[in-house]
Amino acid sequence: MMHGWQLTSHDTLILEEIGDCVAVYSNATGETHLLDALPAEVLSCLSSGACLTHLELAVAVAAVADEPWENWLPQVCNVLERLASMQLVERFER
């Protein structure tokens, strides 16, 4: 069984570009986060309610960043762990 990632259950996020960052507001926690481009792109990929594996997310990021997905994979994994620690994303089994 593979595990993937989704936005934290019962949360809706508001994303607003602010300068070089993206400000993210979590309706569930009431917290505001300022994220740089990669975590913001990961959240954006998941914001439609999609449940994606880290491989699928690396491919999605590579598509907008014009670089092979293999280059993005370690960073995407790190970013997902960070976003999980902020309670913005969570794992799911599929």
Partner: peptide, 29 residues
């Protein structure tokens, strides 16, 4: 000052940012 720095400082400077919820976030942005 970069806007993201200003944003961070204003969040910490507000009397009622947390109470204002998503509306406060949008107004501050």
């Amino acid at each position: 000052q970069p806007p993201e720095v200003a944003m961070t400082r204003l969040v910490n400077n507000s009397f009622n940012y947390r109470v204002s919820g998503a509306q406060g976030f949008r107004s501050l942005c």
